[in-house]
Amino acid sequence: MSRVRVVHSVTQFFAGVGSEAQAGAPPGRKDGAAGPAIALQRALGDRGEVVATVYCGDGYAAEQPSAIDEVVELIAREKPEVVVAGPAFTSGRYGLACGAVCVRVQEKLGIPAVTGMHPENAGADLYRSKVYIARTRETTAGMAEAIKSMARLALKRHAGEPLGSPQEEGYLPTGRRILYFAQQNAAERGVEMLLRKAHGEPYTTELPVPTYNRVQPAAPIKDLSKARIALVTTGGIVPRGNPDRLESAFATRWLEYSIEATEELSPDQWVSVHGGFDTTNVNLDPDRMAPLDALRELEKEGVFGKLEEHLYTTTGNTAAIPTVRRFAQEMVKELKAREVEGILLTSS
């Protein structure tokens, strides 16, 4: 049996080309296996051969528009049958580069590519539906097992063998739904899980609830009666006609509109373009989503100091978490410049 030709794509650091300070390093290659590719070669055994290690600095990959094409060009020259990238663990920049390389390899070279990341890597959210991503630990302490997972996935993908469930195979769920006939219906399976849980026995959920990181609560406002408050909504409220084309789902932007001297959000002038719920009630009275009328009353009564003169808005449904995080970071710059001390955020 001939050995599968594998190219391993890594950040320059793992290829032994300088430290984080050399993150601007352009793409390059080394013959055979270098760095973690040595472990990859061991995991592939006699079924595959790492013919080259291709590397690129994460900074270069993030900043040079041509970087991914350059990396894929280097990979293509090796005539691989499968490409392995990373693992990136929780490194967001590296994860984004790995995901981009894998997608481009699959599209341009028509061969499978796999990578590895921790589920909270920003690249995981963006690429899990396009590329098989082995689930890794947070740090390089998980290198050995990550490499083994990636090697196994790479060989299976190359052989065209169907993959089992994400839990069985150790990859991040791709979002694909695979229909199958279960022996028991959902109610029976649910009750069985509940009984196992009640008896303290192990069970496997069919739909894991994601866990999210925590942030330290901000200190409370000391004197609300003097504080400047901003109104932010993810309810898709925009001026009628949606002049800036806010999306009804998968938002790519946030917008701000002046509400200076506006007493309420009249349905003649404002509308929700949110595509994730029935907007009938909100569109009869947009204050039901962004309560400007109530804020104006409370402002007049002196409950708080002043309402910031813009409505900050986007659409919350199905937005990717890294994108929404960026929206908030961009808004923070504006809000701080406008001396906002507290935010009222509304969503559906």
């Binding site: 999210y212 330290q216 901000a218 995080r325 908030a328 001390e341 935010i343 009222l344 955020l345």
Partner: peptide, 25 residues
């Protein structure tokens, strides 16, 4: 978004019908 605002030091009051979801996030 609420978390990013709070991480930047601005307190956020978040009104949502899905309060349990807000809490788990």
């Amino acid at each position: 978004m609420a978390k990013e605002f709070e991480a930047a030091g601005i307190p956020v009051a978040y009104i949502t019908a899905l309060d349990a979801l807000g809490q788990s996030v």
